[in-house]
Nucleic acid binder design. Structure first.
Lengths: 151, 151
DNA sequence: GCGAATGGTTTCATAATGCAACCACTAGGC
DNA sequence: GCCTAGTGGTTGCATTATGAAACCATTCGC
């Protein structure tokens, strides 16, 4: 049988994350939500995707606690989709994807937009990973450790 | 017609990134490659996915310059799949996904593994985004700016 | 040279995507 | 209150991707 393999219960946090936000449309929905989009039609217009697909994704994002539905801010009888704390926490992932894309997924000079610091309008630095005591870490300086205690 | 929408040519770096590495299996392949996996059967065993799917993903990753095939390190006639510089640059994305997953995709106490600094065995810090002049930035402190000059 | 492992490809069933049509409800003009 | 446009979906159907299993050519260990 060709049931699609689900990573929901994977032990690896990366696999879990991918199962919740590893879909292209979902990620772009979160991106637009971070940029202020709130309404169904707003997402549809910006993303240009079919309404049934959008409906499916929004339902999943709400079910996973990344978006919530609340009464529309403009006082109408409709609903707004707004990011929860969990949804806002996707920000570093978004920035990492953006920086990788800027550097590696465009021809030189092709990319026409950058993430900048609002105060100075200067491009932000590359994301940096640091140890508990503040040293800058790269891939080789890290490893995955299992907390094998039975807790 | 129901052709699957392609984000390959999207102007947004996030969309581009998702089209190259936004697939769950691809991301997990890169994860395992970072942890030292090199051979087809090694990926297949660790990931437990069908061989045809693995073959498709590996081909795409090679085509996108994230992996390269080179003569096997053990001297056999087989090939190794190894990360390119572009592939190794996915590291921050991986860390961001892992940290989000650890914090938001597990029940309390359920997650049994952490990314640690190899030197001290202490968990690493959360990824941090800084401005050019060193200030710590969160989502609201940033915006996307278009370099509207025709270069 | 022989059996097993490696690294795939092929076949076919099932699941997801996406366009288009349809529909209930809301908003706003008058 | 009535009519029309817009919002927020659902349903049906064609196309595409996923996945299990079977198959196959090379290569390895001996």
């Amino acid at each position: 049988m060709a049931k699609r393999t689900s990573l929901e219960a994977a032990a690896c946090p990366i696999a879990r994350s991918m199962s919740e936000i590893g879909d292209a449309w979902s990620m772009l929905i979160i991106r637009d939500a971070m940029m202020g989009a709130r309404r169904f039609s707003e997402f549809q217009k910006k993303l240009g995707l079919a309404k049934n697909i959008l409906a499916t994704r929004l339902r999943a994002l709400v079910a996973n606690g990344i978006l919530t539905m609340e009464a529309a801010a403009d006082g109408s009888a409709y609903q707004d989709y707004v990011l929860t704390a969990k949804g806002r926490a996707v920000f570093p992932v978004m920035v990492a994807l953006r920086q990788w894309g800027e550097d590696h997924a465009f021809a030189p000079g092709e990319c026409d937009n950058r993430l900048v610091d609002r105060q100075t309008s200067q491009p932000v630095r590359a994301l940096e990973l640091r140890s508990a005591d503040g040293r800058l870490l790269s891939a080789g300086d890290t490893e995955v450790k299992f907390t094998t205690s039975g807790a």
